[in-house]
Design a protein around this nucleic acid. Structure first.
Lengths: 148, 148
DNA sequence: TGACGACTACTACACATGTAGTAGGCTCGC
DNA sequence: GCGAGCCTACTACATGTGTAGTAGTCGTCA
């Protein structure tokens, strides 16, 4: 049993670990040398990356398989799941569960492109169909929940 | 001087620090004893909380003023700003800047009530109207003083 | 006036994280 | 067969964080 899934209480990846995970998700699997290239802008010493990978393997974030004299790593975490878990953690810790407030910040962010928005609407619609009858909520009341 | 604003590089509050900050935002200002009550469910030793507060003061997250023999603390971070900064950090670190993906998770989250979802749609629509369609740059740019 | 209780400043310590060095083992070209 | 490289496992060490104990100070109440 892998123990690799990210249920609410498995530790969250650290900053550096996220970077490595992203690199791994991009490439599927990779040797540490390849990862070092992929993460060139971090300017890590090879051994630094190796240390990280070892720790990540201990935590069940990645798995390694020996290929020749080198190890080839692959992610065990599923990107979407890990992200969701991190998001949930943030939501609790920073927003005390108030997703509305989180959204408010996000929605106001000018970095959200129109394309992003369109995509979200799309997803929302999909989620809604599969989950709850459209309550056609007069969500006007939203305004006053946005504390100070 | 203060140095209390959260520009991109001031350190993010830690887990425990967020809890304390939330308590402080709830009460405006408070003595450590009051905070200990407010945070009763954490079951912290008084000195634990005190240590945190001291460290937070060093970091410029809070400020204390002596009142009688005890110190009264007040937050220096502004809630919304701190939250936004944390959100942005998450966005970078976990979603590599893809706010769309973040939102998608938020939207699909089964924990999100239908009401929340409706609210999201609402917000999206609003954002879209106000921002996206034609490049008619509306004065939305006022917000973007956030350096980095 | 002295013990009691609250408060503060210091100190301690374990674990996580970022960062990297060292030493020893394989392999391949010459 | 040997040295140059590359790889791995260990070890190291500073800093941050969670958690708390100790000792010293001060006001108050019996």
């Amino acid at each position: 049993m892998t123990r690799a899934n990210q249920n609410a209480h498995s530790p969250q990846p650290s900053d550096a670990e996220w970077k490595i995970l992203h690199a791994l998700w991009r490439r599927g699997k990779a040797t540490s040398r390849e990862l070092l290239d992929e993460l060139a802008e971090e300017k890590w010493a090879y051994t630094t990356l190796k240390t990280m990978l070892t720790r990540m393997e201990e935590k069940g974030f990645v798995r390694s398989k020996n290929v020749g004299n080198a190890a080839r790593y692959e992610p065990l975490l599923v990107r979407g799941t890990a992200q969701r878990s991190a998001l949930r953690a943030l939501l609790e810790r920073v927003f005390e569960g108030a997703s509305g407030a989180l959204l408010a910040h996000l929605a106001e962010d000018e970095k959200l492109s129109a394309k992003d928005r369109a995509e979200i609407e799309e997803r929302l619609r999909a989620a809604q169909e599969g989950a709850a009858p459209p309550p056609t909520a007069r969500a006007k009341a939203r305004e006053r929940k946005r504390v100070r």
